[in-house]
């Protein structure tokens, strides 16, 4: 495990560094793919940065709301540079709203932007997963399987390298999505829904191998409930999209009209 990366006299937080790398690589791939969908790459970079800024602002505001008493006594902490004073859920919502605002403001086609960006998100998820594995952040459940990883802090206990599973699965699904894009039918939003479908499925089935995680009342894992819903929604949407692409039976079977 490598929670920090030595850099001369400094030490970089491994996970934070990989998150930045994931953001940059995801954006790079999205921008490269933009022109294929008629979206200028610069728009994707700009939308990504709008998402980043609004996401950070929302994550900090969420933290302020959750710990208002602390911030009330020391309001300057609102501007603290600590990346730990952020809440992820408000951050994700804020990032989505920021990107949405940019796309609407520049009158871009939402489906085209989503199709261009979705594989970039898969790549980003894979890179972030590698960072989580190296930093030892996502600890797996105990296993006797030969590829189980022993953490230095508990060398006698092998665990599922869950973060690595997720990273590999995201990369494999990225390859599937890119191959399907070249071969299969094309309709606006297909690549984005396909990306979500696969990612939701892999998270749904890999999540039980994680130790810990956010639990809902009744002991259900929040990540699984969300991904189950995402799987159902994206699968239904892919079916509907495929149906819209197929010629209606009445059109196929109708006899050619006489002149």
């Amino acid at each position: 495990m490598l929670p920090t990366i030595p850099l001369g006299p400094l030490r970089l937080q491994t996970y934070g560094t990989f998150l930045l790398l994931a953001f940059w690589l995801g954006l790079w791939l999205a921008a490269r793919r933009g022109p294929r969908y008629g979206v200028d790459g610069d728009h994707l970079y700009n939308a990504g940065f709008a998402a980043l800024l609004s996401g950070i602002a929302a994550a900090r505001l969420g933290h302020v709301a959750a710990f208002f008493e602390v911030y009330r006594t020391d309001p300057l902490q609102v501007f603290s540079l600590s990346p730990a004073a952020l809440l992820p859920i408000p951050g994700l919502v804020g990032a989505g709203l920021g990107a949405w605002w940019y796309v609407r403001r520049h009158r871009l086609a939402v489906a085209a932007v989503a199709d261009a960006a979705a594989p970039g998100l898969l790549l980003a998820a894979a890179v972030a997963g590698v960072g989580a594995f190296l930093a030892g952040r996502t600890v797996g459940t105990v296993t006797a399987l030969p590829w189980g990883v022993a953490l230095p802090a508990a060398p006698d206990l092998r665990r599922h390298p869950t973060a690595l599973y997720e990273a590999v699965a995201a990369l494999v699904w990225l390859a599937v999505v890119l191959a399907a894009e070249r071969r299969g039918e094309r309709w606006p939003g297909r690549t984005a829904w396909l990306s979500l479908f696969g990612y939701a499925a892999l998270r749904l089935f890999l999540e039980p191998l994680r130790a810990g995680g956010v639990l809902l009342p009744g002991g259900w894992r929040a990540a699984q409930v969300v991904t189950w819903c995402a799987l159902a929604l994206s699968g239904w949407r892919l079916g509907r999209g495929a149906a819209a692409q197929r010629p209606h039976p009445s059109v196929v079977s109708a006899p050619a009209s006489e002149p």
Binding site: F205, P208, L238
Partner: peptide, 27 residues
């Protein structure tokens, strides 16, 4: 379309099993 709907239904049913597995005390 039908294949998508079937695949989704099968994965969602299996997913319910994964939900129960994730909820089990062993995890």
């Amino acid at each position: 379309p039908n294949r998508w709907y079937w695949l989704t239904a099968v994965l969602c049913v299996l997913g319910l099993g994964a939900l129960a597995w994730g909820r089990s005390p062993s995890a």
